[in-house]
Design a protein around this nucleic acid. Structure first.
Lengths: 243, 243
DNA sequence: ATTACTAAAACTCGAGTAA
DNA sequence: TTTACTCGAGTTTTAGTAA
């Protein structure tokens, strides 16, 4: 489904004047650069010794100093020794190198919210059908999710790892289905998340009341069991996307 | 041997902290983890071989594979081999590890905008005094920056590195001084950035029209030259903070 | 085609130490 | 005090292969 796209090695190739730093040491250098930025070297000059830098990154004074030397030679930091007080600051280039790292992580965490899950089909106890048959719910669906759901939910069990991944959906905002009162009892609200179940469009239903547990429920315009020929214990792939 | 579902379960021996990975290899592991996330392994399962990962991170297939093994043993990724198709995804723990990196960079780049500069006092050509004496400007200052500026600006020359650092100020939003028309000519607007000049409060003035160049101008409630006993070529330290 | 082992080469480490 | 060199020891690399 996906391939590993080329050309995203963070700091591809800046002008490499002196020694070619191995990729490996480069990522350590960036760690040091980040530690220095956290200490304020990105917005001004700070006083630090190589020993302190070493303590910070869990290495000896010698190793830390080697890093500082490499960073200096690469043009990422500028150092001056003022008598006994070594001073240091990130250069514009050094800040850019860190920013590139930041942007690449930012794209991961701030990009559009999508999630792929897989689980196995299980039988519910018919509550799905019961709830969907309540007029209070039924009349909301067509205008909000664009179809009248097939009267029955597909229940999918997630294993531990998938459950942890799905936990993120709790933070998402989906399409709201309101709660209501009828027949002397209260029916709670729910959130619908657009989904593809085995490639078929539908929605994940996340009731306000229940904690996220090991079974998630889906609605769709048609019977997913029939359309996808699913039986209990069939594996299904699910794609979710925040609207 | 293992089915897909079996293999996806991270590992039965999760409470085993196992080998302590050195700090050094850990930052390389995170680099691999990030490359995998960029390829989509954070939101689903991707197909990728150790050779491709190696190409991506600039290393041999063997080295890449050792990283994947380490990440797998650490519980940061889950792998399955489906015949010829090796598949892989980040675990919740692996995503958290990346997120921690992201947060630490985020604090650097999204924190309150502050900047320390230093430069050398130079003489202007008296334009500062001329502009500040224009009623159209003068009447705006007290209500916007809280004081009537001493009638004259302090000009500070920045060297190349400081200039690059100061370029960031162009993106900042400061306190607005509006342009106006008077005596048949147009006076442009400017932005004021709160500053401490040698510890003394004042504002950097950034006219809309000029590009950022090697000299920046400051206003203050008093004569900074007198208060700080500055003469031409005196070094000054400057702190800027976005309001 | 893969993954992943072995072993020699290449690095990197910290101790010692000069400046 | 610093920074930063050399050097022996320990790690990590890639090439060659097995599975």
């Amino acid at each position: 489904m996906h391939g590993l796209a080329d050309g995203m090695i963070p700091s591809s190739d800046s002008p490499a004047p002196a020694k070619s730093p191995t990729n490996r040491s480069r990522s350590e250098e960036l760690r040091v650069l980040r530690a220095l930025a956290v200490a304020g070297a990105d917005r001004g000059t700070i006083e630090v010794t190589s020993r302190e830098v070493g303590r910070q990154i869990g290495m000896s004074q010698q190793a830390a100093d080697r890093r500082l030397l490499a960073l200096e030679r690469a043009g990422d930091i500028a150092r001056t020794v003022h008598g006994r007080r070594p001073r240091l600051s990130l250069t514009a280039q050094g800040i850019d190198a860190l920013r590139a790292e930041y942007q690449s992580l930012r794209r991961i965490f701030e990009g559009p919210s999508r999630l792929e899950l897989h689980g196995i089909v299980v039988s519910g106890l018919g509550e799905g059908r019961y709830y969907l048959s309540q007029p209070g719910y039924a009349e909301q669906f067509p205008s909000r999710i664009g179809y009248a759901p097939f009267p029955g939910t597909l229940n999918v069990r997630l294993d531990g790892e998938m459950r942890r991944r799905a936990a993120m959906v709790k933070q998402w905002t989906g399409i709201r289905i309101d709660g209501f009162q009828a027949s002397g009892r209260t029916f709670g609200g729910a959130m619908c998340i657009p989904a593809k179940i085995g490639g078929s469009p539908g929605h994940l239903i996340r009731p306000d009341r229940t904690h996220y547990e090991d079974v998630v429920e889906f609605v769709a315009p048609v019977s997913l069991r029939e359309k996808l020929k699913l039986i209990d214990a069939s594996p299904v792939d699910i794609e979710l996307e925040e609207p």
